[in-house]
Structures are given as C-alpha cells and as structure tokens.
C-alpha cells in the first residue's frame, strides 16, 4: 500500500471542507507516481481477469478460421452472427430450445423456493418448536453437502412418480435442494424484525397469516430479492442436476447443451463460444442490474 495516499484518502473523508482537505483532494486528483503505478497494476489485473471471457465473446462473432488463427488478431476481423444462428438451432442441442427450457425451469424454481423458504424461515426466526435445533443443523449440513449425494435417491423418486425428464421434476429437485440455504439466510434476516412490530399487528387484530403477508414479507423484501437473484444464478448455471434428470434432447438445458456443441473431431469454437455467451449473458445481466442485492446477499449469506 502506498501510505501517503491511502491516508490522503481518509483525510478527505474526515476533513473535506477545510484547507487541508482541499489540498489533499487536489493531490489526489493528480496521481503521483506510486499511485499511478497502483492504478496501472489494478487495471491490468482486472483486465487480465476478463481476458478469457473476452476471448469467448470474440470467438462467438468470428468465423472458425479466424478463431483458429487467434481471436486476439484484430486485423481483417470479420464480424458475423452466423455462430449464434447456427447454435440457436444446432441439431443435437438447439440452444434456442435449451434457453427456453432453462427459463421454464429457473423461474418457478426461484419463485417457489423464495416463497416457501420465507414461510419456513419465519417460525425459525421467531418461535420455539420441537426439533428446531435438529432441523437447523440438517439445513446447514445440506448447505455444505455435495449435490451428488442426493442424485441417486432423487433419480429413483422421480422415476417412480413419473416426473423424470420433466420440468416439474427438475424444479422440485432444485427447490428441495435450495431450501436449506434460503431458510437459513432468511431466518438470519428475520431475526432483525423487532418483536414489537408483530405484537403491534396482533393487537391491531391481524392473524398470524396476515402478519406474515402484511408485515413479515414486506419487511424481508430486500432479502427476498437477494435470495431470488442468487438462487436465479445458481439454478440457471446448474449443470449437475440437469445432467442427471433431463435426458431427452427436447428437455436439455442450456448449460447442459454447451458440451454437445463441441462436435466430434475438431472443436467448433465459434459454436461453443456463441452458446456460452448466450448462456452466461443471462446471469451476468442479472448480476449487473441487481448487483446491490447480489453482493449484499452473497456477503450476508456467508458472513453470518
């Protein structure tokens, strides 16, 4: 760390309106060498971090011959959306259908787990009931457990109830699997709901269910958005569960379809890249637009 300037920083925070504050602000606006160096390193590192992803984007809009030559060669660059078009209707794994399937699975999975999770989290945050401690530990255990552990049991369950290879089957698995962390997360949030609010509502005549709907849910709404955003990216990105539970080419999900785009002998990078960009753009947009909730949720989910 460059000491002079980190201090200048905090000084401007505390004494921004006096003369010294002004001076340090001017100093800060004209980066001296060490600080400029830090900027350079920081920017270089951040760019380095996205180079692989940039490569994917570049490859997705260029013909295969140019990709094989190296996507970083910008001279004579041809921009084409042929890869996207082809991937969208690729015969063994049409990305168009796969994207639709992913939406159909992800949206209900997120909504259901958020609502049912909030309902279950409420008693966990408020009341004593039998087995509370045990359930609590089981939820934490599921949070840490690998998804492979539930694959065999769920495979047999879905087969026997006829939901194998269906949207509903996969949705149920996602909801059951996400319930643990959602309940834990929302419970922690609801611990902050003052008892008096609930009591005031009871005295005002509200039933337990009315309290949940009119007091608890609105109070928890920032946390609900966080849960929904994070769960959305997880379900959308999920690879293992669809691999196990979705088999027919009509029901394949987007992440699952990507390895199929590789082809047999020579990898068609253009197709793979176009499919990848299509798949990743959704969670990335969600992240970019709901960053506040995503970050807050990530930090709260694990930092409690």
């Amino acid at each position: 760390m460059d000491e002079q300037h980190s201090i200048a920083d905090s000084a401007t925070k505390t004494a921004s309106n006096d003369e010294q504050g002004l001076r340090t602000r001017i100093e800060r606006a004209l980066p001296t060498l060490p600080r400029a160096g830090r900027y350079a390193i920081a920017i270089a590192l951040a760019l380095l971090w996205v180079v692989p992803l940039i490569g994917m984007v570049m490859a997705s809009v260029r013909p295969l011959s140019e990709i094989i030559d190296g996507w970083w060669h910008l001279r004579g660059m041809t921009i084409t959306f042929e890869n996207y078009r082809e991937a969208w209707s690729f015969s063994s794994a049409p990305m168009g259908r796969a994207m639709l399937n992913t939406f159909v699975v992800t949206v209900p999975s997120v909504l259901v787990v958020t609502l049912l999770g909030a309902m279950a989290a409420y008693p966990f945050s408020r009341f004593e009931f039998p087995l509370r401690k045990t359930l609590f530990f089981v939820m934490i255990m599921v949070m840490a457990a690998p998804p492979e552990l539930v694959a065999m049991g769920n495979y047999n369950t879905l087969r026997s109830i006829g939901l194998f290879d269906t949207y509903l089957g996969l949705i149920l698995v996602h909801v059951g699997w996400g319930m643990g962390w959602v309940v834990m997360f929302l419970r922690n949030y609801l611990l902050g709901l003052p008892d008096e609010l609930e009591e005031a509502a009871r005295v005002d005549g509200a039933s337990r269910y009315q309290i949940f709907r009119t007091i608890v849910l609105p109070y928890a709404s920032p946390a609900l958005v966080s849960v929904a955003v994070i769960q959305f990216t997880w379900v959308w990105n999920a690879f293992f569960f669809p691999m196990v539970f979705m088999r027919s080419s009509d029901s394949v999900l987007a992440p699952q379809a990507l390895p199929l785009l590789k082809g047999r002998l020579q990898i068609d990078w253009g197709l793979v890249a176009a499919g990848s960009v299509m798949t990743m753009i959704v969670p990335i947009l969600v992240f970019v637009f709901l960053q506040r909730y995503y970050k807050r949720g990530m930090v709260a989910a694990v930092a409690d």
Partner: peptide, 18 residues
C-alpha cells in the same frame, strides 16, 4: 389479542417501517 378489542402503544412505537 385480536379478539379483545384492545389497542396498545409500545415503548418504541412499533410503527410498521414499510
């Protein structure tokens, strides 16, 4: 409480923040 027709004012007012 809802069947008693009482009204209560709390020390911290317990206003619904939303």
């Amino acid at each position: 409480p809802s069947d008693r027709n009482v009204a209560m004012v709390f020390q911290n007012y317990a206003l619904y923040p939303h």
